[in-house]
Amino acid sequence: MYTHKELQRIANELRIDIIKAISRAKSGHPGGSLSAIDIIVYLFFNEIKRTKENALDPDRDRFVLSKGHGVPALYSVFARLGLITNEELMNLRVLGSRTQGHPSYTDLPFVESSTGSLGQGLSVAIGIALAGKLDKKDYRVYCMIGDGEMQEGQIWEALLSAPKFNLDNLCVILDYNKSQIDGYVKDVMNLEPIKEKLIAFNWNVLEIDGHNFAEIEKAINQSKTIKQKPSFIIAHTVKGKGVSFMEDKVDWHGKAPNEKETELALQELKKLLDING
């Protein structure tokens, strides 16, 4: 188990890797990668406890990134854990690399499912959770969805169905960074009230600050105690978290920083490492 301080440091180091990888690729999605990284780090290091050895173990806990465009965050974790090389991380989106622009299961099985066409990963995660129940396995399935993604009809089909099957081995985390390509979620297609909707759909609903490791830990632990119901964590996050000029800026959804912006971003992130020790 890592302390929250250690997790924070890992997440900030990986923010540097994310920016470097997207900058080298000259395309990608920094905003949603930086908003998601703290939660993904917590899950892989303290909850799923992914290692090279257990990466394809049939009993492993699973993490499905339904918002596939945030995959640089996932690759940065894979590289840190030794599932892929650092070179592969830096070859993001390069011809012939396993680090495809969006998760590709046949290239890299650790992603658990190909995603990127929004709305689909949650259904796949439900299928994995159902298989776990059928086979009487103890593994848990974590699935991160995006807020823009939550506008998809298939998400609402999935939200209706998981409680029907009493999937208490499923925990969905909403990376609620409040913006999407065309603007703020509240303007593009408002989701609120989210909590009330999900309670009405029979989910165990939690609401946290998605950048606070104590809150992430508490919510994940609480979700494991709930029986017969799937859990849904509304994680309030900041798009572009950690890089001041990207924070809460819609424009940084799907744009790579240029050389100068990269330098600025890396300077800021390195400062964060110094401050946090």
């Binding site: 709305g119 259904s123 439900i126 159902l130 298989a131 298939q154 209706l160 169905s161």
Partner: peptide
């Protein structure tokens, strides 16, 4: 698994089951 009238979700869940053996 009776999915109700949810063909897309049914297909996705089928995929998740298949990826689990």
């Amino acid at each position: 698994f009776e999915m109700g009238i949810q063909e897309a979700n049914m297909i996705g869940i089928s995929a998740g089951l298949a990826l689990s053996g």
